[in-house]
Simulated assay, not measured.
Amino acid sequence: MDEFKDSELLSKSQLRLWMALYLCPQLGIGALKKLEALLPNLLSVFQLPESELPNYKLSPKQITKLLMPDWQYIDRLVDWLTSQQILVLPFNHMLYPSLLFNTARPPVLLFLKGNIKLLNQVQLAFVGSRNPTAYGSQVTKNFVRELVGLQVVITSGLAIGIDGIAHKAALSAKGQTIAVLGSGLNQIYPKRHLYLAEQIVEQDGLLVSEFLPNVPPVQFNFPKRNRIIAGMTNGTVVVEAAIKSGSLITAQIAVEEGRDVFAISWQYL
């Protein structure tokens, strides 16, 4: 983090405005890209007079939120992010991962804790069974160790099973790993992996989330998490995944985004 100049990261004033934009209802990535194309700078929307805002296809509810954000909540949020050394990258930032930006639905914001240099390095995702066989576990460890030796970053979702095995194998091999969460960074899930998450940051890895810090790990967040794993990586390795599983959703997204997918199936063990 220290290698990046302050000018390359969001200032506190910019972060406040991005939080206000992020909290504006129904202003997703598609709408923001269209709005950005009409403005010299996306944040300049806050400088527009109220009479001009309807010209940018903003609804009355959106206009109200942009004119009167909840600054007390936003300032508490910004203070917490700063105190926890969590960085925020909007989709149009120079440090935003280029592979992810070019996917169908890149997140508007990424909340990051750790080594943000890893975002644009070569990555392979490992996803798979929550209850892998001994063979699947060992193969994952072996592959991760070899990939770390090739300076490949290991990316996964911090889940029980193959995810955790891949993260731990990368750390054991003195490599670097990225954990993408299906919850906010103040709601590490599963709780038994809280220490693992801390280890990842301490050993020059990275935690990634698109959710506000206190968002809980609700079920519909995990497909969103999976699209980030698939979209941010150069390829995905699937280990012993069940037919109906989040791992195969990740693999399907990877295929749709033109990424390589590799499989280790229990059927052939």
Rank of each mutant, 00 (worst) to 15 (best):
N102C: 07
Q47I: 04
S51R: 14
L77T: 02
Q62R: 10
L67Q: 14
M94V: 08
P97H: 01
A20S: 05
L100M: 13
D79Q: 14
Q121H: 07
K113R: 08
P54F: 11
G136H: 12
L38Q: 10
K57D: 15
A31N: 14
L32V: 04
S98V: 09
A134S: 10
W80C: 01
N102Y: 15
G28P: 05
I74C: 09
I86R: 01
E52R: 13
K61P: 00
Y22K: 00
P40V: 12
P90I: 14
E36H: 06
V108G: 06
M94F: 09
L109M: 13
V45R: 05
D75P: 04
K12F: 07
V78T: 07
P97I: 01
A104K: 12
L10I: 02
A20Q: 03
P54G: 08
Y73Q: 08
L95W: 09
S44A: 01
L112S: 00
A37G: 07
G114W: 09
A20V: 01
L58E: 06
C24E: 02
P40F: 07
L53P: 12
P40M: 04
L124K: 05
L35K: 05
Q14H: 10
Q85A: 13
D79E: 08
M94R: 01
L77V: 08
D70K: 12
N115E: 07
P90K: 01
L23C: 01
L77E: 11
K57C: 10
L42P: 03
D70Q: 08
R16L: 11
K61V: 11
L27T: 09
W18P: 00
T133N: 14
P69N: 13
W71F: 06
G30V: 15
K65Q: 09
L100I: 13
L10M: 04
P60Y: 12
L21F: 06
V88A: 06
P60N: 06
P49L: 04
D79T: 11
L42I: 15
K33W: 09
K65R: 09
F101H: 12
S98N: 14
P60I: 08
W18L: 00
L38I: 11
T133D: 13
N92I: 00
N55H: 15
N131M: 11
P25Y: 08
V122Q: 03
N131V: 07
S59A: 09
